[in-house]
Structure formats: structure tokens, C-alpha cells
Amino acid sequence: MGTQLRLLPEQASTIAPEVDHLAYYLLAVSIFFTVLIFGAVFYFAIRYRRRADTEPPQPQHTGLALEIAWSVIPFGLTMIMFGWGAEIFFKERRPPDDALQVYVVGKQWMWKLQHMEGQREINELHIPINRPIKLMMTSEDVIHDFFVPDFRVKQDVVPGRYTTEWFVATKPGKYHLFCAQYCGTNHSAMTGWVYAMSPQDYQEWLAGGPTGSMADAGARLFDDLACGNCHKPDGTGRCPNLTGLFGSTVMLADGRTVKADEAYIRESILNPPAKIVAGYQPLMPTFQGLVSEEGVVQLIEYIKSLNPPLGQAQGNPTQTTVPAREPAAAGAPPANR
């Protein structure tokens, strides 16, 4: 590589050609107006150049029709940009249900990634092509941003919350991964590579990894932290039963309800009093500082694994389309007294 000059990045995801098509439209409109304005300015400037200093001033003419025309026509063109851009954005922001989930934790200045099967990577991400990949991302310190130009995807990675990003890679290859949100001294070194592989290669790569899934790691952590002392699987503990929790709707003490998704579970581990389940006391201490962001996502995977299998892909990460099978049972456990 080195010195060859490229004008467009590679199209290596399903969304990339769509973004490029929108770019071509925007470029066409831009070139049209640039040529129009430059052309008109040049033409008028030459055609009506001052030939004598005594030229009488010209009276002004006004044209309401013209004003309306050059307001309304560009507005119409921009509304196409808006609609088209919004359509792509909706796709970019709504991962499909069957996406393969990968957890990403950003910290100054590296990317830590965990696969459901248990593989962990630093500054590298191995993924199969032609399969939706969903990244569930958070940060240990400052705001980062997971940017893969050849996939045309980018999303801030914010401490204290989960953000998601998804894509389908279409070509095997090695692609740049950049941190795109300024994060301190070695921001420009917080880069890495995304390896898109054929499904067979990916399977081989997986086979070379450690045994034991994220959920297993989460189960060990669950024991180490003695969570089971209160969160008893039969519902007799001082704290809610976690079986079947993920994806259900939880009734809170103050009358609100909340969807039990990744963000809710994370908050309940690190900041338990924020949402107290109806019928329980705010007894749980905070685990802020006791469990890392990577540990939290392992716990989340463990809690997900407690759900009864749904037939299709286990540990289904998307909550919205899963029919809430037992909302009443999971959401409002019997009062403990």
C-alpha cells in the first residue's frame, strides 16, 4: 500500500453500497449547484464588468416568483436527502433479531471484545461474512467510537450505558477499525482490524479458542460474588428470581414498568436503587468497582441463559420481538412476606 491514491473506501458491508448511492445523489446535487453558482458568478462578472467609471447605476428589479422558486426547489431536493438518509439510518440503528452478538468494551486506549462462545480479543474482531453482527458496546472510562469505514458504520461508545451497532460484512478481508471519538493521548493508536471470514474459516477460528462460553464465565462470577445468596432460583430469596427475567417486563416499586434488557440489568448491578422491583426492599449493595464492564456483560449473558430456550437461536439478544411468555410471573414475583 502506501502511496496509491484511492478516492472511495471499499464497499465491504451490505449497507456500504446504500450509503454510497446516497453519497452519489448528494454529490450530483452539490456539483450541479456548484457549477450553477460558479458559472453564473463568472459569466455575470465578465459579461457585466464595469467598462467606464461613469456607468449609471442599474435599477433593481425584484422577483417574488424567483425567490419562491429558489427556495422551494432546493427544499424539495433536501427533503429527498432527509428521507433517504433517514431510511438508511433506520436500517443502521435496528439490528435484526438473528444477529450474532459481540460485546465491546472500550477503554483508553484499546478495544476489548468478547464473543458469546467465550473468545476474547483485543483490537481485533473476527466475524463471519453474510451474517448480521450486533455489537453491544460500553466504555470503562471516556467516550469512544467504534468506526469501520469500509462498513460505513460508526457509533459512540459511552460510559454508563450500552449502545449498539450492527452490520453484515460481504467480503472476506481485513478492514480498519478506528476510534472516532477523541479519547485522550493515544486516541490515534486506538485502532485495530476487523477480519471478515468465510463461515468455514470462522468456525475454524472459533474452534481454536478457549472452551467455556460467556454465560459460563458469568455463572462463575455469579458464584464468586455470591449473588445466589439473595437471588434464589426458586424465588424464596430476599431479591427477585432471575429465571426468565431477560426480555420480560418488570413492575417497579414506584408503579413504573421497565423492560428487562441489557441496560436495565447493568444498571441494577451497578446502581441497584435506581429501579426497585415491586415487592422488594432496596437491600442490594452496589457492585460499582467490584465488577468490571466485561464482568457485567458476562453476568448479563448468564442471566440470559437462565431463560427457557425459545427454539430458535439461544440467547436471543433482541428483546422487542420475543413474545413475553410469562410477564406476570417474571415481572411481579410473589411478595416475599
Binding site: 446535487v29 433536501t78 436527502m81 432527509f82 438508511i88 443502521e92 467510537d145 460505513r152
Partner: peptide, 19 residues
Amino acid sequence: GLTGLFVASLGMDVHVHDT
């Protein structure tokens, strides 16, 4: 101004944001 139209378009901005 015209390149502002790129960054105001959601799907486009995701790619060029912070570049």
C-alpha cells in the same frame, strides 16, 4: 453549505461523522 447537506443526512453522517 452543500457539504453541510451531507452531514445533515442521517445515513450519510454516520459514515462521515468525526472524520
